[in-house]
């Protein structure tokens, strides 16, 4: 009997058929929600009704997964706003109340991995520009310590952000009100943005975020503090769920010494404009031309 040769054409045909049936099988076996998420459009391309649908789908998933009713907002930017932040270095005592206020407000994973969006650096007095010698694991019995001062650092929401430029999938972008945001459903977890950020402002969820049921904050924003999945990058969003409703970010409210100031840079009567006009302000790493919106100053 003549042995039938397995030709290249037959091989490719078998491969195509196997591939198509495999894809059809996996799509058919998905739930409607999973299918919708797979074919989700980019957030910036969604219409209002698609955003509402996405939000509803997420709220249902969170209810199923965490047993809590989340209220996910997809609120857009208020017109004529550009958020700016001020930090008074003469008053920061390094108590880290801002760090943990942020952790509680923004549903950050408490352990495995521990994610903290704000880092407080301890620098020797007289050593302002020597950031390489900063210590962020300090743990004295009492603060402030003699001879040191403290500088909290978080995402600077640059006007010219290097992280946005390098993202290969455009999962992070700058909103019209100046906030640099991440869409966790679009991020592929390559961490290129973390390499590009000169301020180490971004953090990564190496595994599924871990919080107890009573630790969740259920007022969330799609681009902000909604529950993350593993393998996505996140960062400070200036509490997007708060500021778009006119409230101060959680770190501003947590600070016991009134170090943190927040406001709209386009409003000439705001606190942030007053302090830029009247105090000695500087920004970190200005030579890199990232134009951060985080103004450090000395009030004394």
């Amino acid at each position: 009997m003549a042995h039938k040769r397995f030709t290249r054409r037959e091989f490719l045909r078998t491969l195509a058929v196997a591939g198509a049936s495999g894809a059809a099988f996996s799509l058919a076996s998905c739930t409607k929600a999973e299918r919708e998420q797979f074919f989700q459009k980019h957030f910036l391309e969604m219409t209002e009704s698609e955003k509402k649908q996405t939000v509803k789908r997420l709220e249902e998933r969170y209810l199923e997964q965490y047993g809590l009713t989340f209220s996910v907002s997809a609120q857009g930017a208020t017109p004529h706003t550009l958020w700016g932040y001020g930090l008074d270095l003469s008053r920061c005592i390094g108590c880290r109340r801002c760090v943990y206020g942020c952790v509680r407000e923004n549903n950050l994973s408490r352990h495995n991995p521990q994610v903290q969006w704000i880092r407080v650096l301890r620098l020797k007095k007289g050593n302002l520009t020597n950031l390489e010698q900063a210590e962020d694991y300090y743990n004295p019995p009492e603060v402030p310590e003699e001879g040191y001062f403290y500088m909290p650092v978080q995402c600077q929401h640059c006007e010219n952000p290097p992280c946005v430029k390098v993202c290969p999938v455009h999962a992070t972008w700058k909103e019209p009100d100046g906030l640099v945001v991440v869409d966790y459903n679009w991020c592929i977890g390559c961490r290129y943005c973390m390499a590009a950020c000169p301020y180490r402002g971004r953090t990564f969820n190496w595994s599924e975020p871990k919080l107890r049921k009573d630790e969740w904050n259920t007022q969330v924003h799609y681009l902000g503090n909604r529950p993350r999945i593993r393998n996505v990058v996140d960062k400070c969003t200036f509490c997007i769920q708060r500021v778009r409703n006119g409230r101060y970010p959680a770190c501003v409210e947590a600070c016991p010494t009134g170090t943190r100031k927040f406001g709209n840079l386009l409003d000439p009567d705001s606190e942030i404009r007053y302090l830029i006009d009247h105090k000695r302000v500087f920004r970190l790493k200005e030579d890199l031309n990232t134009e951060p919106k985080f103004y450090y100053f000395f009030a004394e």
Binding site: I93, C95, R96, N112, Y138, N139, P256
Partner: peptide
């Protein structure tokens, strides 16, 4: 005059048991 405060705990180091896999 402000009294010194006890600071909140420092972040876990990357190789800490509670931070690693």
């Amino acid at each position: 005059k402000f009294k010194p405060l006890k600071p909140e705990p420092p972040p876990f180091r990357p190789l800490d048991k509670q931070n690693g896999p």
